[in-house]
Amino acid sequence: MLEIVFYLFAAIALVSAIAVIAVRDLFRAALCLILLFMTVAGIYLLLQADFLAIVQILIYVGAISILIIVAIMLTRDARQGQPAGRLKYFAAIVSALLLGTVLLGILNTAFSMPDSAPWQETIKPLGKALFGDSGYLLTVEIAAVMLLSAILGAIAVIREK
């Protein structure tokens, strides 16, 4: 049964990912992107990564997609649909390179299945791994300070003189 659910999620994810670039209406494209984020969260759930799934929804659906929607709101002629690209050939080359890199990475990786059963409670091991003795305390703190400085920088840039 899990396999059926997985293929369902995968199909929805693929269709909505294609729809993001195929749909002419910008706002609908953004909504398709949100659907894609949700199905990715569903796939995380199937992998028993409940914390990751919830954070995916919290950050991507709750925050990033809203950012995208606000950006669309501030775009002139958003109702006219996606504008035609001027850098067609350049974009084609870049995306072909990107696709090639990703495909190369996927094909050359030997995916191994874990032997042990997944953790029932994921937060504690995650917290220990991040903030424990051999964790990444300094890295996490530096990332937090960097985010804060980015926010302050953004405010400083747009502030009226």
Partner: peptide
């Protein structure tokens, strides 16, 4: 859920 509250925060943002 062992992440009950985070679930609430995430879902209510939809």
């Amino acid at each position: 859920l062992n992440i009950g509250i985070i679930y609430i925060i995430a879902i209510s943002s939809i």
